[in-house]
Amino acid sequence: MTNLTVNLGGMKMKNPITVASGTFGSGADFAALWEQTRAQGQTQPQAQMTSPSREALTNPRHEKPLSILGAVTTKGVSLEPWAGNPGTRIAETASGMLNSIGLQNPGVEAFCTHDLACLTTADVPVIVNVSGHTKDEYLRVIDRLEREPAVGAYEINISCPNVDSGGMAFGTDPAAAAAVTAACRTATKRPLIVKLSPNVTDITEIARAAEAAGADALSLINTVAGMAIDLQARKAVFARTVGGLSGPAIKPIALYAVQRVYQATRLPLLGMGGIASVEDALEFLIAGATAVAVGTANFTDPLTAIRLVEGLEQWCTDNGIQDINELIGALS
């Protein structure tokens, strides 16, 4: 039996698999789908049960569906409700997708009442993604969340390309990244994960700034800035022109960023960017990630994260790995 337990900057995870913020809501929708799929799986002929992920779902040790995961990472939450961006919000690209959601969320108060309430009984660590237009807003969101025992860690989003102020503006300047991190640090003793943008000249510079300012871990990468054009209209598809590229198209970019940041800092890393298979997840671990997040793949196959948990264990067994931690940063 392989040990899959990892420690992400002070947050213990029973396996290294979580989900990328914004692709999973707060988990309730996916949990309901998983439950119903499991229920169907039990009543339908075995011929219908073909994929490994379906087998994973019917594994009786996963009584509460979200507890299969190492952690749930929530959609970004801000102090006040944000409406998000107008107009078209997604576009498919070759092996990827662009999004311009704009961090639509109901605000931290509603988030605590509705979203966190559901997660309290889910038996899974919760990473809350925190967004703000100003340093003070990040701080006040954390202040409010400090009263919630269900929160296991914070992921500080200084890398969203889809909002005008805040977001990526903090994540592309080392001094600003350090300032936001230091401010958040004063508000909590819980694990603080700073989410980095790939849209910079040198990602290790931002990583070191966040480390020096008190981050416990780093997550990377957020989406890559891109755009799509409506040929007939000769207009950008998105109202803000820019969107964030995700999916397998960005996996090599993300893997290289993880490898470089692993070399540049001592912090544990949460790797993400195009992870869809067990092999993808393993590559990120070897590049230096302590844990990994499934993002866009949740849309293609909503059972991806479950499949990865099961597949990771199987791969370790098959390859004689006693402890998954042996693989972290094992790049030779």
Partner: peptide, 9 residues
């Protein structure tokens, strides 16, 4: 994208 209410696309 997700079709189940999570992604707000």
């Amino acid at each position: 994208a997700c079709g189940i209410g999570a992604c707000l696309s």
